[in-house]
Write a protein that binds this DNA or RNA. Structure first.
Lengths: 154, 154
DNA sequence: CTATGGCTTCAGTGTTGACCGAAACCAAGG
DNA sequence: CCTTGGTTTCGGTCAACACTGAAGCCATAG
């Protein structure tokens, strides 16, 4: 006996949330993201999310604020509707990825200033130089590659 | 009146540790890494690290175990020496970076399986498709780029 | 075999952060 | 102005984790 699509999607949402939990995004925040990526219709109110994800209204509020602030979710209010509607802004997903790449590349600033402190003692700088060269290569390669990324039309 | 190089290096170590703390590496672990990158001579015992970094022997032990396990630090024991000596293995730093890139790319497995669940409903899959295309591009580009990385001679 | 120095283990402490649920707050509608 | 439905704020709980320091463990030296 096979399980329904919605059940599978629940499991999928949970896996996605677990992945991002490891990267520092709260579990409920990850669930919201996953749910908003696949729900129909695309917009949901905070109350609907609380019920669907079985989370407290407080947690939903906190995490929605976080996601809106990160740009991944947009909030829309409408005249005549007391409830705000939330939806993912899938286009902004790239921003999040870019932030992660930037974090990697930014280590180069550290290795670079470390190398300056050790200038005049190449012997002692040897270990740090190896690391610095790696990050210098990353800093040279990643940003241009990122720029060549195909942006979705429309 | 200017401060000495060792003082500056202490501050540098602290900045490095702070950076990696944000990425989930314990503060003391980060300090050990930074210190082992620039200390002279290159090898230190756990006791020396504890004194130099003003941390408890327990913390040093735990974090050294963690770093050795991650491959970033190697432990060496010598006949006639009761104290083991630790040093950074700067070559292995690339492994850590690769793990981070892999974590990014691995999201593609999630988006891919999500797309499968939504096959047959392209309308509903639209948001996820946008995200999936981004990670597909990353999965196509990053591994080959990484392979082209110049590995240090010697 | 005993003593010594150093490393690791472990129980305990303090802190951080996610989460909950109730209370306060804020429209919009009667 | 009061009510209603919804959202945000806030105090409190709980679990996870970094860190400490003391006790235990090992290996070496005498």
């Amino acid at each position: 006996m096979s399980v329904g699509r919605e059940t599978r999607l629940s499991a999928w949402i949970e896996r996605l949330a677990a992945h991002f939990a490891e990267e520092g995004i709260p579990l409920i925040g990850g669930r919201i993201l996953g749910y908003l990526l696949v729900c129909e219709p695309v917009e949901r109110t905070a109350a609907e999310l609380a019920q669907e994800l079985e989370a407290s209204s407080g947690s939903i509020s906190t995490n929605l604020k976080f996601l809106v602030n990160a740009g991944l979710v947009t909030k829309r209010t409408r005249r005549g509707r007391q409830a705000a509607e939330y939806r993912v802004d899938e286009k902004r997903w790239a921003d999040m990825v870019q932030r992660r790449l930037d974090a990697l590349v930014s280590v180069r600033d550290l290795t670079e200033s470390g190398m300056r402190l050790l200038s005049g003692d190449p012997q002692r700088a040897h270990r740090l130089r190896t690391v610095d060269q790696l990050y210098t290569w990353l800093a040279d390669e990643l940003p241009p590659l990122w720029e060549r990324r195909p942006t979705p039309p429309k």
